[in-house]
């Protein structure tokens, strides 16, 4: 910034430094503006949800609450509690089962090449891109016939099945990186299909499981279409939140508090394990 130097050498270098400082400063300014925009909704949620009902009015939308209160969180929690617990009951088994099956599938597809695998794999993957509307009518009919319509068990099954393509994909890509020699050494020692999986593949699978479990947990927790179609009677958290926001009598401060509560579990996972979350995110674009 000190470009006032009179010496000829100083003049030569100073403009470059000055330019550099300016452009560095500009980078930070732009980033900070975007960060502010991205955090705007968060600010609004927090400000509104800590207000009491009589404080929520148009003219003071953006101002901080004059008195902090947890009223709205209490009410939001009592409205949302059944949804939160339903979602928890759904998300744990659905995540675990789809991750376990995905690991096995990934192991087979990456280490046990068989004819036709090149056709089966893309056909499996297509299942994660389809608009689920295209299978919704038969799905409801099917669940009705086996008595699982409007039950959490039915929804668990749905999430396991439609989660299989992505879990298989992530594990397949993960295991492809494992050198075949490692398994060959095990095979020489006489280990069979399950032995190799149990003693060689599984022990090094932890990062893969972390990525898959985080991914499935977030997806299933946040999912809405299946939840509202298959299990309206036992509402999941997203359905409960939508019902709450759709009703005219619930105040905005409660709605914002409820949005916050519904977002907390996935946000915590994201903040603690963001690195793995991003890996799952990028795996969704197939090539990884």
């Amino acid at each position: 910034m000190t470009s006032t130097s009179q010496s000829s050498t100083g003049r030569k270098i100073a403009p470059m430094n000055w330019e550099r400082t300016l452009s560095r400063g500009l980078i930070y300014v732009v980033l900070l503006i975007f960060a502010a925009i991205f955090l705007l909704p968060v600010y609004m949620v927090l400000v509104t949800s800590f207000k009491s009902i009589d404080q929520v009015n148009i003219s003071t939308m953006w101002t901080l609450p004059s008195a902090f209160t947890l009223e709205s969180f209490k009410e939001a929690f009592s409205e949302l509690a059944p949804g939160l617990s339903n979602s928890l009951v759904l998300v744990v088994p659905a995540t675990v089962i789809s991750a376990a099956m995905g690991s096995m599938n990934g192991y087979v597809l990456s280490k046990w090449k068989f004819p036709g695998a090149n056709i089966i794999f893309p056909l499996m993957l297509f299942g994660m891109f389809i608009p689920y509307q295209a299978i919704l009518i038969p799905l409801v009919e099917f669940l009705n016939n086996i008595g699982l319509f409007n039950s959490i068990a039915g929804l668990i099954m749905v999430h396991v099945v439609y989660g299989l393509p992505i879990t298989t994909l992530i594990f397949r890509n993960y295991y492809t990186e494992v050198p075949d020699e490692m398994l060959e050494a095990g095979a020489i020692d006489g280990a069979g299909f399950f032995g190799l999986y149990r003693y060689i593949v599984l022990p090094i699978s932890l990062p893969g499981f972390v990525v898959v479990i985080i991914w499935q947990f977030t997806q299933i927790w946040n999912e809405f279409l299946f939840a509202i179609t298959v299990s309206q009677k036992t509402p999941m958290v997203t359905v409960a939140l939508q019902n709450l926001s759709g009703s005219q009598i619930i105040e905005w401060n409660v709605q914002m508090a409820a949005s916050f509560l519904a977002a907390i579990p996935t946000l915590i996972v994201y903040i603690l394990l963001g690195r793995y979350f991003i890996r799952g995110l990028l795996a969704g674009s197939v090539k990884g």
Binding site: S245, Q255, T266, F277
Partner: peptide, 18 residues
């Protein structure tokens, strides 16, 4: 910049509606 990806579209919808 990435945290909204961890949210449900339902949460996004309720907040942005407001």
């Amino acid at each position: 910049f990435l945290f909204p990806m961890a949210l449900s579209f339902v949460v996004t919808g309720v907040v942005w509606k407001w």
